[in-house]
Simulated assay, not measured.
Amino acid sequence: MEPRSSRPGRAPAETRAVTAGPRREAPPEVDVSVILAAPGWRAAVPRVERLARRAAEAALREAGRGGAITVLLAGDRELRRLNGRHRGKAKPTNVLSFPGAAPPHLGDLALALGVVRREARANRRPTHAHLAHLVAHGALHLAGHDHLHAGEARRMERAEARVMRRLGLPNPWRGAT
Protein backbone atom coordinates (compact mmCIF):
# COMPACT_ATOMS: atom_id res chain seq x y z
CA MET A 1 0.00 0.00 0.00
CA GLU A 2 1.11 3.51 -0.69
CA PRO A 3 1.65 5.86 2.26
CA ARG A 4 -1.54 7.75 3.22
CA SER A 5 -3.70 5.25 1.32
CA SER A 6 -6.46 3.22 2.87
CA ARG A 7 -7.80 -0.27 2.47
CA PRO A 8 -10.37 -0.73 -0.25
CA GLY A 9 -13.82 0.38 0.86
CA ARG A 10 -12.43 2.37 3.73
CA ALA A 11 -12.03 6.14 3.84
CA PRO A 12 -8.88 7.74 5.27
CA ALA A 13 -9.01 8.55 8.99
CA GLU A 14 -9.30 12.30 8.37
CA THR A 15 -12.36 11.76 6.20
CA ARG A 16 -13.98 9.34 8.65
CA ALA A 17 -13.69 11.84 11.49
CA VAL A 18 -15.39 14.54 9.45
CA THR A 19 -18.18 12.34 8.13
CA ALA A 20 -18.80 10.31 11.27
CA GLY A 21 -21.78 12.43 12.30
CA PRO A 22 -22.35 15.09 14.91
CA ARG A 23 -19.70 15.49 17.58
CA ARG A 24 -20.71 14.47 21.05
CA GLU A 25 -20.37 17.13 23.66
CA ALA A 26 -18.43 16.35 26.79
CA PRO A 27 -20.72 15.38 29.68
CA PRO A 28 -21.53 18.28 31.99
CA GLU A 29 -19.24 18.77 34.98
CA VAL A 30 -20.66 17.18 38.13
CA ASP A 31 -19.42 17.88 41.67
CA VAL A 32 -20.98 15.98 44.58
CA SER A 33 -19.93 16.57 48.19
CA VAL A 34 -21.07 14.23 50.95
CA ILE A 35 -21.30 15.26 54.61
CA LEU A 36 -21.58 12.46 57.14
CA ALA A 37 -23.42 13.98 60.11
CA ALA A 38 -24.65 10.70 61.63
CA PRO A 39 -21.83 8.15 62.02
CA GLY A 40 -24.34 5.29 62.09
CA TRP A 41 -24.51 5.54 58.29
CA ARG A 42 -21.12 3.82 58.03
CA ALA A 43 -22.37 0.79 59.95
CA ALA A 44 -25.61 0.67 57.96
CA VAL A 45 -24.08 1.06 54.48
CA PRO A 46 -20.52 0.09 53.56
CA ARG A 47 -18.67 2.93 51.79
CA VAL A 48 -21.75 5.11 52.20
CA GLU A 49 -20.09 8.33 51.00
CA ARG A 50 -18.95 6.68 47.78
CA LEU A 51 -22.41 5.20 47.12
CA ALA A 52 -24.18 8.53 47.75
CA ARG A 53 -21.75 10.32 45.43
CA ARG A 54 -22.14 7.72 42.67
CA ALA A 55 -25.96 7.81 42.90
CA ALA A 56 -26.08 11.61 42.68
CA GLU A 57 -23.62 11.69 39.78
CA ALA A 58 -25.56 9.01 37.88
CA ALA A 59 -28.84 10.89 38.39
CA LEU A 60 -27.39 14.16 37.13
CA ARG A 61 -25.91 12.43 34.10
CA GLU A 62 -29.27 10.76 33.44
CA ALA A 63 -30.86 14.21 33.49
CA GLY A 64 -28.09 15.67 31.32
CA ARG A 65 -27.30 18.26 33.98
CA GLY A 66 -24.08 19.44 35.46
CA GLY A 67 -23.47 21.32 38.64
CA ALA A 68 -22.75 20.87 42.31
CA ILE A 69 -24.80 19.02 44.93
CA THR A 70 -24.18 18.50 48.62
CA VAL A 71 -25.59 15.35 50.24
CA LEU A 72 -26.11 15.46 54.02
CA LEU A 73 -26.33 12.01 55.62
CA ALA A 74 -27.97 12.84 58.92
CA GLY A 75 -30.12 11.29 61.63
CA ASP A 76 -33.86 11.45 62.15
CA ARG A 77 -33.63 14.33 64.64
CA GLU A 78 -31.92 16.59 62.10
CA LEU A 79 -34.40 15.69 59.35
CA ARG A 80 -37.32 16.31 61.73
CA ARG A 81 -35.89 19.78 62.41
CA LEU A 82 -35.37 20.54 58.71
CA ASN A 83 -38.77 19.14 57.72
CA GLY A 84 -40.45 21.26 60.39
CA ARG A 85 -38.60 24.42 59.41
CA HIS A 86 -39.00 24.13 55.64
CA ARG A 87 -42.19 22.12 55.15
CA GLY A 88 -44.11 22.68 58.39
CA LYS A 89 -44.15 18.94 59.18
CA ALA A 90 -43.02 17.91 62.68
CA LYS A 91 -41.65 14.50 61.73
CA PRO A 92 -38.57 13.13 60.01
CA THR A 93 -38.74 12.17 56.35
CA ASN A 94 -36.52 10.03 54.17
CA VAL A 95 -35.06 12.71 51.87
CA LEU A 96 -35.37 16.46 51.47
CA SER A 97 -34.24 18.42 48.41
CA PHE A 98 -33.25 22.07 48.65
CA PRO A 99 -32.73 23.84 45.31
CA GLY A 100 -29.57 25.92 45.00
CA ALA A 101 -29.63 29.69 44.83
CA ALA A 102 -27.55 30.04 41.65
CA PRO A 103 -25.61 27.89 39.19
CA PRO A 104 -23.45 25.92 39.34
CA HIS A 105 -24.87 24.91 42.76
CA LEU A 106 -27.95 22.80 41.96
CA GLY A 107 -28.80 22.33 45.61
CA ASP A 108 -28.60 20.13 48.67
CA LEU A 109 -30.06 16.80 49.75
CA ALA A 110 -30.58 15.59 53.31
CA LEU A 111 -31.36 11.99 54.28
CA ALA A 112 -32.45 10.49 57.61
CA LEU A 113 -30.73 7.27 58.63
CA GLY A 114 -33.53 5.86 60.78
CA VAL A 115 -36.26 6.54 58.23
CA VAL A 116 -34.19 5.08 55.38
CA ARG A 117 -33.45 1.93 57.39
CA ARG A 118 -37.09 1.45 58.46
CA GLU A 119 -38.39 1.94 54.90
CA ALA A 120 -35.79 -0.45 53.48
CA ARG A 121 -36.73 -3.09 56.05
CA ALA A 122 -40.48 -2.60 55.47
CA ASN A 123 -40.01 -2.96 51.69
CA ARG A 124 -37.59 -5.89 52.04
CA ARG A 125 -34.84 -4.01 50.23
CA PRO A 126 -31.18 -3.65 51.16
CA THR A 127 -30.47 -0.37 52.95
CA HIS A 128 -27.74 0.53 50.48
CA ALA A 129 -30.12 0.13 47.52
CA HIS A 130 -32.80 2.25 49.18
CA LEU A 131 -30.25 4.95 50.00
CA ALA A 132 -29.02 5.02 46.39
CA HIS A 133 -32.60 5.27 45.14
CA LEU A 134 -33.43 8.17 47.47
CA VAL A 135 -30.24 10.06 46.58
CA ALA A 136 -31.03 9.58 42.88
CA HIS A 137 -34.63 10.69 43.50
CA GLY A 138 -33.50 13.85 45.28
CA ALA A 139 -30.84 14.64 42.67
CA LEU A 140 -33.40 14.26 39.89
CA HIS A 141 -35.61 16.78 41.72
CA LEU A 142 -32.67 19.21 41.79
CA ALA A 143 -32.16 18.58 38.06
CA GLY A 144 -35.76 19.60 37.32
CA HIS A 145 -37.79 16.37 37.57
CA ASP A 146 -41.00 16.25 39.56
CA HIS A 147 -43.85 13.84 40.27
CA LEU A 148 -46.87 16.04 40.90
CA HIS A 149 -48.77 14.70 37.89
CA ALA A 150 -49.08 11.12 36.63
CA GLY A 151 -47.03 11.67 33.45
CA GLU A 152 -44.25 13.45 35.33
CA ALA A 153 -44.23 10.74 37.98
CA ARG A 154 -43.89 7.99 35.37
CA ARG A 155 -41.00 9.81 33.63
CA MET A 156 -39.25 10.28 36.95
CA GLU A 157 -39.74 6.63 37.93
CA ARG A 158 -38.23 5.53 34.60
CA ALA A 159 -35.26 7.85 35.11
CA GLU A 160 -34.76 6.44 38.62
CA ALA A 161 -34.89 2.87 37.26
CA ARG A 162 -32.24 3.73 34.62
CA VAL A 163 -30.00 5.27 37.31
CA MET A 164 -30.33 2.19 39.49
CA ARG A 165 -29.51 -0.06 36.53
CA ARG A 166 -26.35 2.00 35.88
CA LEU A 167 -25.39 1.49 39.52
CA GLY A 168 -25.99 -2.26 39.24
CA LEU A 169 -28.86 -2.09 41.76
CA PRO A 170 -32.44 -3.39 41.52
CA ASN A 171 -35.25 -1.34 40.05
CA PRO A 172 -37.08 0.15 43.07
CA TRP A 173 -40.36 0.22 41.14
CA ARG A 174 -40.38 -3.45 40.12
CA GLY A 175 -43.09 -5.14 42.13
CA ALA A 176 -44.30 -1.85 43.62
CA THR A 177 -48.03 -1.25 43.75
Results as ranks from 00 to 15, higher is better:
144 G>V: 04
28 P>R: 12
59 A>D: 02
149 H>M: 06
100 G>R: 05
70 T>G: 10
84 G>T: 14
130 H>Y: 11
79 L>A: 06
82 L>V: 05
82 L>T: 01
158 R>V: 14
43 A>M: 02
129 A>M: 02
68 A>I: 04
18 V>E: 15
121 R>W: 01
80 R>G: 07
126 P>I: 03
127 T>Y: 00
168 G>R: 05
150 A>K: 10
32 V>Q: 04
67 G>E: 10
124 R>S: 14
141 H>W: 02
148 L>E: 09
40 G>T: 09
6 S>D: 10
137 H>N: 10
162 R>Y: 00
51 L>K: 04
41 W>G: 08
33 S>A: 15
48 V>F: 02
105 H>Y: 05
166 R>A: 15
11 A>Y: 08
86 H>M: 04
149 H>V: 14
20 A>T: 13
85 R>C: 07
28 P>D: 08
68 A>T: 14
126 P>E: 14
145 H>V: 02
109 L>V: 08
65 R>M: 07
45 V>K: 00
129 A>F: 02
66 G>S: 11
6 S>C: 12
151 G>V: 13
21 G>P: 04
139 A>T: 13
84 G>S: 13
83 N>E: 03
87 R>C: 11
142 L>V: 06
126 P>F: 05
177 T>Q: 11
10 R>F: 12
175 G>R: 05
35 I>S: 12
19 T>V: 13
53 R>L: 10
130 H>Q: 13
108 D>C: 09
100 G>D: 08
40 G>M: 05
6 S>T: 14
138 G>L: 02
149 H>Y: 07
140 L>Q: 03
140 L>F: 05
170 P>I: 11
3 P>D: 13
127 T>M: 01
135 V>I: 13
30 V>C: 09
136 A>Y: 03
4 R>K: 06
89 K>S: 09
32 V>P: 01
71 V>F: 00
67 G>F: 00
84 G>A: 12
57 E>L: 06
172 P>Q: 08
140 L>G: 09
4 R>A: 13
106 L>H: 05
69 I>G: 06
66 G>I: 07
134 L>Q: 13
150 A>W: 05
60 L>I: 09
126 P>M: 06
8 P>E: 11
137 H>M: 04
10 R>M: 14
49 E>I: 06
40 G>N: 08
56 A>K: 01
138 G>I: 03
175 G>Q: 07
72 L>G: 02
61 R>A: 15
112 A>N: 02
132 A>W: 00
11 A>F: 09
114 G>Y: 00
31 D>V: 15
15 T>N: 03
36 L>A: 08
120 A>G: 12
97 S>M: 02
137 H>F: 08
122 A>E: 14
177 T>W: 02
83 N>T: 15
76 D>K: 04
75 G>P: 01
17 A>E: 12
110 A>K: 01
39 P>A: 13
